[in-house]
Write a protein that binds this DNA or RNA. Sequence first.
DNA 1: GTAGATTATTCGACTAACTAAATAACATGT
DNA 2: ACATGTTATTTAGTTAGTCGAATAATCTAC
Lengths: 184, 184
Amino acid sequence: MDRDRTDESLIALRRILRATDLYGRDLARDAGLTAVQLRVLQIVAERGRCHPTDVAAQMGVTQATISVLIKKLESWGLIQREQSATDRRQIDLTITPAGLEKVEVAPDALQQRYVRHFEALPDWEQAMVVAVLERVAGMLGAGNFDAAPVLAAGDITRQARGTNGETGHGAPRNGIVPGRNRAQ
Amino acid sequence: MDRDRTDESLIALRRILRATDLYGRDLARDAGLTAVQLRVLQIVAERGRCHPTDVAAQMGVTQATISVLIKKLESWGLIQREQSATDRRQIDLTITPAGLEKVEVAPDALQQRYVRHFEALPDWEQAMVVAVLERVAGMLGAGNFDAAPVLAAGDITRQARGTNGETGHGAPRNGIVPGRNRAQ
DNA sequence: GTAGATTATTCGACTAACTAAATAACATGT
DNA sequence: ACATGTTATTTAGTTAGTCGAATAATCTAC
């Protein structure tokens, strides 16, 4: 019966979402940010040079809200604000290296575990996993904004991989930015 | 090269997470709840008869925080508090039908799209998707609390399936509970 | 060039989430 | 029985996120 199949696949998908959700909540904390702040950062990282209006629209909040979030993130050196050349009312947002590091560091815990298991799979099974995941991503409608401008594949994984286990977070990992306890 | 494979699989996984994340933020709003409130509800739904301490631990907050969240959710009839029989300091939390409805309604938009595509797949491909998703869930460490006590498979999907497209949210969908605009 | 629309920011005010500390009720070990 | 630990709640106070309205700067049409 394919009714059972659909159920099974939904349950498995749910388990995946649940696992990532649990991490997701803690990720921001690990980065010393709130969930909302990290989200702004992620959006800017993905879009690469966008405007406050875009971010506000994508998050479903007003410009006023974004304005103060951006202000904080800029004061921490995580994103950069500069007046647009073409339309001087607008502000061009770009993510800084420090901000990019925050975004990249985030998925660490999840990825490390996953990558370890994945690379232990036999070759044919790896291929199958890739094929299916891409199919599922498509079925979820996640397909469009492919070719992420900033987060290239190598960048995403460079940290999570690498066999030097101890310092999973790369080297510096601390700039000016807030504490890991209280995200002002 | 299996380096490329790992990258590809991570990218696909990322796309899945991104898609669900975008929905995830809006889900709470659709339910007229905040993200945190919905999360409490989800945890109680999964665990089925648990204690505030458990929820607090899982969410990484203090008991005090949970206490007031639970109070609100109870006042809205979404969860039930009753003194434990075995240890009368403890409170047994259970989700109410109304609360369950909130949790189940949530993934609708996502699921409908997914299920539609999934059921259009040829048989062998459905089997493959199920197998891989379960493997991935295991690799992500999502494996343990299987056999969800409350959310049985049928319940999860009964709403999302069914070809009557228009009223995707089932019938009643509105009880006493807060508005969809401002989640007090 | 002037009128009207857009873009971003600031200000004031409100709510949700969170904590620490105090309290109350209950359990447990000795 | 008593001391100690656990569980949940309340209280008071902090912070972050959010909005609406007001403001300033700038673009666009006419």
